[in-house]
Design a binder for these strands. Structure first.
Lengths: 247, 247
DNA sequence: CACGTCTATTGGAATTACCAATTGGTAAAG
DNA sequence: CTTTACCAATTGGTAATTCCAATAGACGTG
């Protein structure tokens, strides 16, 4: 659909200029007539683009004065403050209960779907999708829409927070995938046996290992950082290059 | 600020006409030129209003065809499907874990705030606010932003869903407030004693009674309905009015 | 009856003009 | 020298008009 109306293109351009730092929050945009020249469109088109930005609350229009860039509410500055540890701890406790609840009400069809996610993950393709599907199906099996909604929200927090995605990077690497698979299998077996306590325990074990893995990764990263800085200092203060130099 | 730009007035008018049923979802709005006549403004102004509605996703513009009213995503048709039972069950399990977690990390200041919510509730004023604050502070005490976020989400589900608000109506009536207060006090004491298991149990007990109260209310309502219908039938088929009429 | 073409309708965009609010400078008064 | 009042330039607000492009429905042809 390249037939987007013209003003949307202008909206994108102005928006990228704003987020690109050309117009910091609080600053004034060039007058409409100038923008029309810059983007080589008519003034009405610029006005339409500005109205779109205004509805989106990116700018504020002051009659007779100009168009001003607003602070970005960046929804979820609160979300950004959530760390991978907190998220994983929450998921451990909540999805532990979800698994226990699901064990009492899961159907054979759902168990079959779960088993498919295990096969998918073993094949190695779509590993993340299989992971999501696994946890989601268990939430569905609770017959509780609020639980499903909560589990989905937590997953969304994970994938929408770049910091968390980064922190999970190494933990979910291919080399660790068999661990996830083993733990998922344990959860699956507990659910198959309709054993609520075992399902809860297996889910806790799953997330508990993840938390430890996150700690290990954090520790390794911190250690790396220390080494790097030490190496920098060594470079700065070393006398290797100037002592006993054979001229 | 009565100096709102003209097109905002048009946006409001069109929007109220849509929600007023003049233009059902899927139907086409009158052409821009007609709207300009109807509202006695110029066509560019109509265009600006339509663009605002388009950015808000109330309408869809099809070039050469017309402007069509979109379904209102009334955020959360999925949310509407969540029943009071499901929500309460979720809160029982999740906030049970929250209480257990909080018991290990709650501060004396937070305990003091909790105690204040108990006093507030005892005084009877701001009972709902005190309830919300009570559960919220416990979530804060977990030192886990994801948990806090989840608890807040569940609370929002409750207050934003009219059906759930209605179902909770009788359960949270003043006559039952002392029960809630007693249960909150029990949770508070468990937290004060830093007893995770006791806190979890007290929270479970709290929500478990709520679930039973919801069931009772549902049952009473259904019974009422049966009686009402029976009474209607009685009125329809009764012979009281026509037999042995003293003329 | 099916298919393609033609045309009326409708939105898309540009141009021009003029109005209204704001702003900032300048000149006059104190 | 400071303050105030006014005026003019700037900037957005609205309108009127024109032309273009996409769509849909009518119409005609095979």
């Amino acid at each position: 659909m390249k037939n987007r109306r013209l003003f949307w293109r202008i909206v994108d351009q102005i928006e990228s200029m704003i987020s690109g730092g050309d117009f910091p929050a609080g600053s004034r945009l060039p007058p409409e007539r100038e923008l029309a020249e810059i983007f080589d469109v008519s003034r009405p088109t610029i006005r339409e683009a500005i109205i779109a930005l205004e509805v989106r609350e990116r700018v504020e229009v002051k009659t007779g004065s100009g168009v001003y860039v607003l602070e970005q509410n960046n929804l979820s500055k609160a979300d950004m403050a959530i760390s991978a540890f907190e998220l994983t701890q929450s998921r451990a406790l909540i999805e532990g209960e979800v698994a226990a609840l699901a064990a009492t009400s899961i159907t054979d069809e759902e168990l079959a779907v779960l088993h498919r996610t295990l096969v998918d993950m073993e094949r190695g393709e779509y590993a993340e999708e299989a992971d999501e599907e696994f946890h989601r199906v268990i939430a569905v099996a609770t017959r509780n829409a609020a639980m499903l909604r909560t589990v989905e929200n937590l997953w969304n927090l994970r994938v929408s927070n770049p910091q968390i995605v980064s922190d999970y990077g190494s933990v979910c690497a291919k080399s660790n995938q068999h661990k996830i698979l083993d733990e998922h299998t344990a959860i699956y077996n507990a659910l198959k046996g309709r054993d609520a306590a075992a399902a809860r325990a297996a889910m806790h074990k799953h997330f508990n290992r993840l938390i430890n893995a996150l700690f290990d990764a954090l520790e390794a990263k911190a250690l790396e950082e220390v080494k790097r800085k030490a190496s920098e200092k060594r470079g700065l203060y070393s006398l290797d290059g100037i002592l006993h130099r054979p001229t």
